[in-house]
Each structure stands twice: as structure tokens, then as C-alpha cells.
Design a binder for these strands. Structure first.
Lengths: 245, 245
DNA sequence: GCGGCCTTGCGCACACTGTACGAAGAGCGC
DNA sequence: GCGCTCTTCGTACAGTGTGCGCAAGGCCGC
């Protein structure tokens, strides 16, 4: 046994091929692992190397199944959209109940994965992902079942989704800073209060609002606020029925 | 002149102090330069080194004026919010006109800086930025002038802003992919069409919608769609006046 | 004048990123 | 056996944010 390829590490120390018996890597596995990592540690913690380690794989082993990191993110986004529940069409409680339920599920899903909002503005063609398409079709169906024309249903869906995404964006931003600070909502609010009070000098309305919000909890009202806003959006959308049908 | 500047640095070749006569660096300068860079080349192109070069400064020279990149981004976000116009309160045309105008300005501003939507979900306390506060106070005033209670005005503002941000997020995502592709909207749509048509098989409503949208232009309808959605949101908000205000 | 501070700018270094490339091995048909 | 394709992965490269320490004003009390 004359020479070996490696300088010093001899045959005995060399890691030994050790091919995996698992079906190795698959796109679905990669996407799932990325999702776990994102949920656990947030968007900044997702690196291809960490993902590789989590999969017992090399740093660049994912590139056979996924073109690049952006594409991976698009896949993960679609995966998340897959979690959104869509009530069966023809709900006897009417389109408003169905749409409300769907909107709730959407908000809950986005807030369960708060990192997603920082990716939505770049996820180019996530709009062709199967789960996104499924969701859109289902929402269109819900509106149509409520008497909307297809065009009006499209409009209504876009408006509704915009509202949900917009609210979730600011909520997720809040949740993310909170998580990063490692403090409880109350602690953080307490620490923030002096700065906020100071900043809000000269803005009477904001000052009054902040003072009121300080007395009652923040977290508890978030759900109610969402519902109230959702109600009024739906009320506005109902307008398409009488004016446009 | 024997040697040249780089290889053997002698006293003669050393770059010579050359202190800037400009007031050197200031936070405002840094923020402006970052904004220019972001507008010109997008979010991925913003690196502290590039920013330094653009300012005739070293890579780490900004850190005396700005704690870190995230803080810089918060400052830039507030700067952008400063571009949003707020009509004077007491507009004779009523609160709806004022709010509509403000919403238009907000959407236009966000779309003028489409990279911003990928930062909104992380810009933790941008909510204490002076321009954000000014905008919020002004919007509250507009709603109050229309007869909303302060609480209702807050609700209305949040709902409205959520709608605008949500719509702008998806529009900005579209504009960004478009810009990255370097193609015109029409070219891109043409190239995308086969894939879209294929993806949309099995979703009859989407297929019909896509077919219709293909015949008419895309860009032209974006403004109208925004207006239509805005109208219905405002209609919904008006509900606070009779039920609550 | 002049020494000592304090602020600002910056070169360097470190740990880390996405990913191109090429080699190596596994499983196949022949 | 040979060749071929498909995965996996080690290495490398250019680039990132930023901590640290040094240098060079500007400004102070003397």
C-alpha cells in the first residue's frame, strides 16, 4: 500500500464512503427542513450550509434538487400556503362565513411563520405554485357561490388578500422584533414606553391612543382588531353584489 | 518618478491624508445615498461597502453614524414614509377624498421604492420614526374630521394601511421580478404565458380569468383595480360612522 | 504656544454567505 | 469488464456585516 491521495490522513482515518441508505435527498425533504429551520430560527438563520447540516448533507448538495436559494424560498412559500384551510364551497352559512373562516386561517398561517412576510415582496412567481393556485381557485369559488361574478370575485379576492397580508405584515414585524429581543410582550412594552411617550409628543391623537393602549393589554386586542377590520372589508366587498352582481 | 503607488508603499506614494473638506459624513447623507442605491439597484445591491464607495468613504465609515445595517434600513424606511403626502385636514371634499388622496400617494410612494416591501416585515420599530408618526397623526386627523371617534379612526387607519401595503406588496413583487428579468411587461407576459396556461389546468375559474387578462393589458388595469378595491374598503369603513362613530 | 482628549474615518481581519466546478462514487445496461 | 448518468460533496472564490485598533483632525484647559 504505497501512497494515498490525502497528505496525512491515512486510510484509517478517512471518513469511509458511507453512502446513505435513506433515499438520500429529495426536494420535499429539503423544503420541509428549510421550513423547520425558518420557523425555529427565522429568516436570517436560513443558510444553505445550515440546511445541509440539518439534512446530514454537504453544503452544496441541495443544488441538484433546487436551482438556488430564491427558488427554494418560493417552494417554501408555496408549502406554507398549503396550510391555509379553505372551507368547502356552498357553506350553508353563506359566503361571508366561508370567506371569514378562510381569512382567519390565512392570518393564522402567516403568523405561524412570521418570516414569510419578508419574503412575499420578492417571491416572484410564487403565484404559479400549486398551493397558491388551489387557494385562489377556492376563494374565487367561495365568492362566486355568494353571487359574485367572476370578475367581481377576482377583485374581491385581491382586496381581501391584500388586507390580510397587510395586517399580517405589521403583526409579523412586531412578533419578530419581540422574538429577537427575547422578552415577553409586557417587558418589551414596558421598556419601549418611555421612548414611545417621548416620540409621540406633539402628536396629540397618537399620544391619547398610546395612553389608552397602555392601560389595556396589546396582544388581546390584536385578534379583535383583525376581526373588526375584516368585517368592514367584507361589508365593503358586499357592495359588488348590489352594484355589479 | 521611480516607483508607482501600490506595491512598495513609501512616504511619497502614500495616499496623503487628504481630509475631506465637505462636512465629511452625516447620518442624513448616508441615508440619502442608501436610498439612491436601493432605488437604482434594489435591495440585494445594498451593501455597506458599496454604500461607502458611493460616499467616497471607507467600508466601515458609516458605523459612527449608524449602529448597523438594520438600523440604517429603518432610517431609510422612515425617509420613504416622508414622501407620502397628507392633504390638509378639513378638506372641503370630505374625508373620503382626503383619505383616497393619501392612499394614492402612499401606493405611489411604495411602488416608487419597490424594495421597501421586503423590508417592512422586519423594520421593527420603524413605527417610532418621525415621518411614520407624522403620517399616522395626519391620517387619524383626517378620519376624525370625517366624524370618526379616535378609536374608530385608529381602526380605520389600520385597515386602510393594511390594504394599501398588501396591494403594494404584490405589485412590488411583480415589478421587481420584471425589473430583474430586464424585459418589458409584454415580453415577460408572453414568455410566462405557456407555463401559466399549463399550471392553471384543472382550475376552471383561474383559467377563465387568465384568458381574459391575456386579451387586455395588465399594467393598465392595475391602477383601476387599486381604485376599485380602495373604494370598497372605504365603503366598509364608512360603516363605523353609523354604527359606532 | 502645547499637551491631552474626543470624535471621526478607515484598513484589516474574521466568520460567514451563495454557489460554480470538478471529482468521486452508485447504479445501471451492455 | 466498460461506459454512462445521476447524486453527493470538498474546495474555492468573491462577497458580506462588522469588531477592533490606529491615525489624524478639532478643541479644550493651560
Amino acid at each position: 500500500m504505497p501512497a494515498d491521495e490525502q497528505p496525512l490522513p491515512s486510510v484509517w482515518t478517512r471518513p469511509q464512503p458511507q453512502r446513505r441508505e435513506q433515499p438520500a435527498l429529495s426536494r420535499q425533504q429539503i423544503v420541509s427542513a428549510a421550513l423547520e429551520l425558518l420557523d425555529a430560527e427565522g429568516i436570517d438563520a436560513l443558510s444553505m450550509r445550515k440546511l445541509g447540516t440539518r439534512l446530514n448533507a454537504g453544503a452544496t448538495s441541495m443544488y441538484t434538487h433546487v436551482a438556488n436559494k430564491d427558488e427554494l424560498l418560493e417552494l417554501v412559500v408555496d408549502e406554507v400556503y398549503g396550510e391555509i384551510e379553505t372551507p368547502a364551497t356552498g357553506d350553508p352559512a353563506g359566503w361571508r362565513a366561508a370567506v371569514t373562516c378562510c381569512a382567519h386561517s390565512m392570518r393564522a398561517t402567516l403568523l405561524r411563520h412570521p418570516w414569510i412576510v419578508s419574503v412575499l415582496g420578492e417571491a416572484g412567481l410564487a403565484y404559479l405554485g400549486p398551493n397558491v393556485l388551489r387557494l385562489q381557485e377556492a376563494m374565487l369559488a367561495m365568492f362566486e357561490a355568494g353571487g359574485f361574478s367572476l370578475q367581481a370575485a377576482d377583485q374581491a379576492m385581491n382586496t381581501l388578500v391584500a388586507y390580510v397580508i397587510g395586517i399580517s405584515t405589521s403583526e409579523a414585524a412586531w412578533l419578530t422584533t419581540l422574538a429577537r429581543s427575547g422578552q415577553s410582550e409586557q417587558e418589551w412594552a414596558d421598556r419601549l414606553w418611555p421612548a414611545a411617550e417621548q416620540a409621540v409628543q406633539g402628536y396629540p391623537r397618537l399620544r391619547k391612543l398610546y395612553a389608552v393602549q397602555r392601560t389595556q393589554g396589546l396582544n388581546s386586542t390584536r385578534d379583535d382588531d383583525f376581526d373588526t377590520g375584516l368585517e368592514s372589508v367584507l361589508h365593503g366587498l358586499a357592495n359588488y353584489l348590489t352594484n355589479d352582481g
